[in-house]
Design a binder for these strands. Structure first.
Lengths: 209, 209
DNA sequence: TAGATTGTTAATCGATTAACAATC
DNA sequence: TAGATTGTTAATCGATTAACAATC
């Protein structure tokens, strides 16, 4: 996926993808930018501009071929490029994300969880093992050396009080992307990227506008 | 909360709030826009502009009083204005959100869940009862008539195949805000607002930039 | 052909960043 | 006073919307 696609465009393209899946299910062979725009309550030229980022092209007077456009979006956004990830914190949210089957469809492959609760250690969640946090570096190294798989992504769902410490463990384990679900602003080195999943922000934005 | 605050500003203000909580914990009485900006890797004038939306004011050469600024943000964003909400779908994600204690701190009060699994009906999750989906309208009416509480918000965490049907139940139950965690674009009347919680989009945006 | 739709350019709008006077 | 910081205005940047020729 080329780097020049804005986050907003990516999010819209995924919504188009949802719509296209539904169209295919219903057997609709073509869809117009206007139809997509109406469902999402956005401008139709916005839709055409986003689609212009894909390989797909439309037909005048007809619209876009649903099957073809769907595939183009998948290619553009790299749904097939499976990326390995760890989850730190096998509490409610961490466990739910580990069991969340949608992620795999979009290229996120969760391969293991980490937690400090002795009762959880060595149990399985959706086929993924839960390790003690102290094993993080070791498991990461093992993945890289033995399984030839570099894990660069971690999902952080530990309690707020453990967030910064956990982030430091992640940095030590060579993690480069931290998807942060905790209500804590993390301090990490320059080359590590943090994405703050601000559920509360979405909620407040949504219900106050 | 006044309507003119952009979603982006709201999300930043919440991150400032996280930072301020941490400062208070550490006993730092003052913080400058530059310090906040550095933690979030954003521009310091952006921080000052966002803070200008609050009642709080800073001191030249000193910065902002952490305690005061934290309170101002809470007031501005209405953390105290508890809003009642239902969760539809008591699966992994729905259950995790129901147990998620952070929400209450930010004004989201989940009062009941709905699911179709007979094994789950009438059980409790974090003190919140799980009702059958067919009871939705009845429970909503009861809340309004008996408990004098209008429920306008619903969190949708049902399987994709049940999403549109569930949305229609919500519309019938007078819900005005649907926080949609399903990979489905919902069709609802004009006066009902949908917020698509695009976790996959955040992930792809994050790991591809 | 007439009507609908794409693809793209230009215009508008909004958000971020730079700059700096005022203040302590 | 000198230096640091706020508060705010102006400049820049990027994203959305409008418009329309080209196409089928």
């Amino acid at each position: 996926m080329s780097a020049q696609i804005s986050g907003k465009a990516i999010k819209r393209l995924i919504l188009y993808h949802y719509i296209l899946s539904d169209c295919l299910l219903k057997g609709n062979e073509y869809i117009s930018s206007q139809q997509i725009a109406e469902l999402l309550k956005i401008d139709d030229s916005q839709v055409r501009k986003d689609i212009a980022l894909c390989a797909a092209s439309g037909k005048s007077n007809v619209g876009y071929n649903t099957k073809e456009l769907k595939k183009s979006i998948e290619q553009l956004l790299g749904f097939k490029a499976q990326k390995a990830a760890f989850i730190l914190g096998a509490g409610n949210l961490g466990s739910a994300l580990a069991k969340h089957t949608d992620f795999a469809d979009y290229g996120l492959d969760i391969i293991a969880l980490f937690d400090n609760d002795p009762a959880k250690i060595d149990t399985l969640l959706n086929g993924k093992k839960i390790y003690p946090l102290s094993e993080l570096h070791h498991v990461a190294t093992h993945e890289q050396l033995v399984n030839k798989r570099k894990v660069e992504i971690a999902i952080l769902t530990v309690p707020a009080s453990a967030a910064q410490n956990s982030a430091e463990l992640l940095v030590h384990a060579q993690i480069k992307y931290i998807w942060n679900f905790t209500p804590v602003v993390l301090s990490v080195p320059e080359d590590v990227r943090v994405c703050n999943e601000n559920l509360v922000g979405n909620f407040l934005d949504f219900t106050n506008s």
